[in-house]
């Protein structure tokens, strides 16, 4: 009982302190991220942070975008010198951040990681809001198993080898290949290149091998694969011969789903800003520092227009 009381007291203190410190002032937030041009995912991610950390919500956000780790480090150091209250980081690389984060801690700046983990001791940051790529793969593969096909002959088109998304989304399917529940007709990387994905599927079609599932690790490659099927006169989607699976939930991809041309699209949520904002405003330190952003998988049979509007990324 005493413990609980102490906890409640501590919490209220934290809250009131936070409230006092910025009573008439906006919370200064420094964001270190990758540039929106990196991908559709990143564009949505950047837009989400701009929306949530706005002046109306009580924030003053200064963003810095770079694909280079050293430039990001310099920018983070700059934010610390500028005296921001909160530092949000999606690092280009997992290493090299110890010094900067220690400096932030000494300056009393709260650090939140989003989208990507960094190799540093846990006490250097408040929380990390990330996607669990392996779980995305598991969700997708479980969905595929639920379809109860007589046999699974899978063409697996991988992303850039070694990227988080590729490793995560490949893992669950590899487990099925090893267990023998699914047959690996082809497993090739198209390094996220749509045209390469098309060529890979074309070569399988030309070889005359049977397949009934295409598991592409992003939407673009799924579209490339479908282009190859269309040219060869192979039906796909809800009432077709081949099941099409993609990832990332681009708006146009979800529309393909709704139209029944594809069967499944797995989400990789770029929406971490609200979770972080809630943490900052509540002042709470979460029990588990690594917070997994909940992610969905959409089925062509159940997807709604509302889902497309809410979860679809980019333009249509």
């Amino acid at each position: 009982m005493k413990k609980l009381l102490a906890l409640v007291l501590a919490l209220t203190m934290c809250l009131s302190m936070a409230a006092l410190a910025h009573a008439d002032d906006l919370i200064k937030v420094g964001v270190v991220n990758n540039p929106p041009s990196e991908s559709g995912y990143r564009a949505a991610n950047v837009a989400d942070f701009e929306k949530v950390f706005s002046a109306e919500n009580g924030y003053e956000m200064s963003p810095y975008y770079s694909l280079k780790n050293d430039e990001q480090l310099t920018a983070a150091q700059g934010f610390i010198t500028d005296g921001v209250d909160v530092l949000l980081i999606s690092a280009a690389e997992t290493t090299g951040w110890d010094e900067v984060l220690t400096a932030a801690k000494e300056a009393g700046i709260k650090v939140y990681l989003f989208d990507r983990m960094i190799d540093v001791p846990e006490d250097l940051y408040e929380a990390a809001v990330v996607s669990d790529m392996a779980k995305e793969g598991e969700t997708a593969v479980n969905w595929l198993l639920e379809q109860g096909l007589e046999e699974y002959n899978v063409i697996h088109i991988q992303g850039a080898m070694g990227s988080d998304a590729q490793i995560g989304r490949t893992g669950a399917l590899d487990a099925q290949f090893e267990a023998g529940t699914m047959k690996k007709v082809a497993q090739q990387t198209a390094t996220w290149d749509e045209a390469e994905a098309k060529k890979i599927v074309e070569s399988v079609i030309n070889s005359g091998e049977k397949f009934n599932v295409i598991y592409a690790e992003n939407d673009g490659m799924a579209k490339g694969a479908v282009a190859a099927l269309d040219e060869a006169g192979i039906t796909h989607g809800v009432n077709g011969d081949v099941i099409i699976m993609g990832f990332d939930c681009n708006k146009w991809a979800l529309k393909e789903l709704k139209a029944g041309n594809w069967n499944y699209d797995g989400q990789c949520s770029p929406f971490q800003a609200q979770i972080i904002s809630d943490l900052i405003k509540s002042g709470e330190t979460p029990a588990e520092k690594k917070i997994i952003n909940a992610e969905k998988g959409f089925d062509a049979k159940t997807i709604t227009d509302e889902d497309i509007a809410t979860y679809g990324l980019g333009e249509d």
């Binding site: 041009s37 990196e38 991908s39 390094t191 996220w192 290149d193 749509e194 045209a195 098309k198 673009g220 579209k223 490339g224 282009a227 146009w252």
Partner: peptide, 16 residues
């Protein structure tokens, strides 16, 4: 041609 093939433009991967 590259764009028409796929019905999509990805500035990062088109004719990479």
């Amino acid at each position: 041609i590259g764009v028409c093939r796929l019905g999509l433009i990805n500035h990062e991967t088109l004719l990479i």
